[in-house]
Every structure is written in C-alpha cells, then in structure tokens.
Amino acid sequence: MEMLTVLNPLNLPLAELEVGKQFYWHLGNLEIHGQVFLTSWFVIGLLLIASILATRKIQLVPAGFQNMMEYAMEFIRSLAKDQIGEKEYRPWVPFIGTLFLFIFVSNWSGALLPWKLIHLPDGELAAPTGDINTTIALALITSLAYFYAGFSKKGLGYFGNYVQPVAFMLPFKMIEDFTKPLSLSFRLFGNILADELVVGVLVLLVPLFLPLPLMVLGLFTSAIQALIFATLAAAYIGEAMEEHHGEGHGEHH
C-alpha cells in the first residue's frame, strides 16, 4: 500500500488496483467469495432472461432474438458434434453449451461492464471466471463429466482406454486425468485474471485511450478462452467414449 502512495504522490483520483482481496461472506463456518457469486448470479440471470426471451413464443420462421439464440444453439451443436461425434453428441449439448455460454458471458461481463464502479466493502467485482474457485469448479465438473461419459458408455471397459494403444501408456494416461482439470482451470483463470491485471495496470499508469486496444484484445481472448474450454471439455468427453476396436480411429471426422 505504501508503494501505491509513492507512485501517486499528488493523491490524484487514479484507479486503484486490488488483487487477491476477497469480499468474504460467512455461511455457517464456511467462507465464500461474495463478489464472485454476485457477478455469477448476474451472468446466470442474463442467460436465463435471454433463454426466456428467445423461447417465449417460438415461431417456425425465426425472427429477432429467437434467431440469434438459434444461431448460438447451432454453434454449440456443431461444436459438440465436431468433438463428440454425430452419434453421441446430443445428450452432451446442454453441458457443453452451458460451459461455453457461462464462461463466455462471464468473461465478456468482466471485460465490458464497469463492475468497479460498484464499491464493495472489500475486494472488487470482476468476471467470475477470474476467480480460481470458479475455474476449478468448472474443470472438476468437466472431469466428472468425462468419467461419467466413459463409464456409462463402456462400463468398466473404460479402463481399457488407459492401456491404449500400448500398455506403458498407463502412467501417462493416469497423470493426464490430473493435468486435464489443472490445465483447464489454470488456463481460463490465468487468461482472464491476466487480462484484467494488464488493463488495470495500464489504467493505473495511463488512464486514457492507451488501454483501449488491450481491452479489445481482452474481448478477443475472453471469447477464445470460452471456446477453448468448451471445445476441450467436449473433446475429453468424446475421447472417453471413443471406441478402440481394431484400428478404429476413423469414427470421428
């Protein structure tokens, strides 16, 4: 804190940078991050309102908002279909789609909305995906999802995946089960937080105009990160359900 006052000796009304400060809520003897939940509820509300608006009166010839949401739906479907395959993708569309929509809207809400204008007693509002808890939660759910996909498709034969194509792959495949959620969660967390920090630091140094290109770049990375998370989740699920009989790698195109 002293460093900040040194950098801002004239006490100009410059933006402050707060990292790692949490707005704690106490739930029994549990502690939760209130600012993450506030923004995530905002995102969830946005998604639900959009869904209700799009499906309020469904027409054969789509118009307006229904059209846009149908475009989103087709995008999600094609994403899931590309990764999981034509035969199996349908039950996974809600999961993959919600991953994509939740992360995308979270990221963009963090990049576009001036959350920092709302003052909290402690910490500050930001994208929910910039919090390690959110990303680990999403990554662990993804892990559970692909385990579920594998076991429900092949039963215990799913363990056969671990010795494909050769038996000594076993340790690597086991390590993969840990690295998958780790990389998923830290990639998303790191990108979003880094984007916010870079913009924050630049705003701290040069408050006008200069951060704008970086903010645009941030919008781009945010969208890409949502796409990457959803695509990888779908790819893991598809991989878990893949058939290995013979040299059957030609099922997924």
């Binding site: 790692g20 939760i32 939940f37 959009a50 919600t98 680990i136 939660a137």
Partner: peptide, 26 residues
Amino acid sequence: LFDIDATLPLMAVQFVILVILLNALF
C-alpha cells in the same frame, strides 16, 4: 489469488443447476 474455499463446491452446484435450468428453458 489462490484462496480456495467453499466457493468452489457452491459454484459447482450452482453450475449444475444452471445446466438443468438452461436445458429446460433453452
């Protein structure tokens, strides 16, 4: 930054609920 607490499981539950809601609504 790496303060992991009860936010994690609650966020997971919230996400699963969101999946179910969006499945029905969207």
